[in-house]
Design a protein around this nucleic acid. Sequence first.
DNA 1: GTTGTTGCAAAGAATTTGCAACATA
DNA 2: TATGTTGCAAATTCTTTGCAACAAC
Lengths: 137, 137
Amino acid sequence: MSPDDALRTAGLRATRQRRSVLASLRQRPDAVTAQDLHAELRRAGEPVGLTTVYRTLTALADAGLLDVLPRDGEQAFRRCGDVHHHHLVCETCNRVEELSADEVERWVSDAAARHGFAVTGHRADIFGICAACRAGV
Amino acid sequence: MSPDDALRTAGLRATRQRRSVLASLRQRPDAVTAQDLHAELRRAGEPVGLTTVYRTLTALADAGLLDVLPRDGEQAFRRCGDVHHHHLVCETCNRVEELSADEVERWVSDAAARHGFAVTGHRADIFGICAACRAGV
DNA sequence: GTTGTTGCAAAGAATTTGCAACATA
DNA sequence: TATGTTGCAAATTCTTTGCAACAAC
């Protein structure tokens, strides 16, 4: 999905600021804070008001285009490709890898059905230490 | 695990305030905010300073006894029975049911091994609408 | 042109810290 | 008794809002 498509999906106009925010999010697989993203854009010479960063991230998260994670006292956002969230997270370098998982899909349907739930989404994260970090890189 | 054991595990002394916080957490399956927990304890006639609530929740989360979730702009905490987190969350009433799942355990090991990760933990959440909420209760 | 968006400054909340009195082991 | 804990008030963030200038459709 292109940045402009994403914005359309969220019912937002395509502005320079929002494109910058989306472009930055696309490049990073890990979660980022509004404060950090604001600082990063400023460093990159594409200044966007902190207020706008907050409003854009919140709007995208409301539209279901971003996941929200807690990150010591702050809210961190990360893009989520689709309705299914399967991640492998390194607790040392915070890098995130996407996973695909048929077993999980099946488990989700079965478990929800057993409990009488209508599924709207799911998330499966594995936390660990990646090979590079274990090697001390 | 008893409240006092939990505190010992976290390397904390057993005080009246911390026991109150833990007792309150035990009774609720859903996540709670430091602010809300503080108000609740005050209503229950077991006043604990807001500062202490924050410090206790943070310490327990650091010790791995609590999960931290984002809850619009605030951090919500919920107890997690063990290292495995499998929840069925109703997006309407926010009730949380615990799940067990062998399929998920297997998937976790396999996926991590394929990517060279050393697993430290995992989490699998299913979001949906529970039967009661769908019935309009 | 109409309506949505931006960003500043200010307000509002959440969370943390300093420190003296107090409780636990 | 030695050390960890509490809670108040103050200080620090993080996040939201009011509003006038500006940009997208």
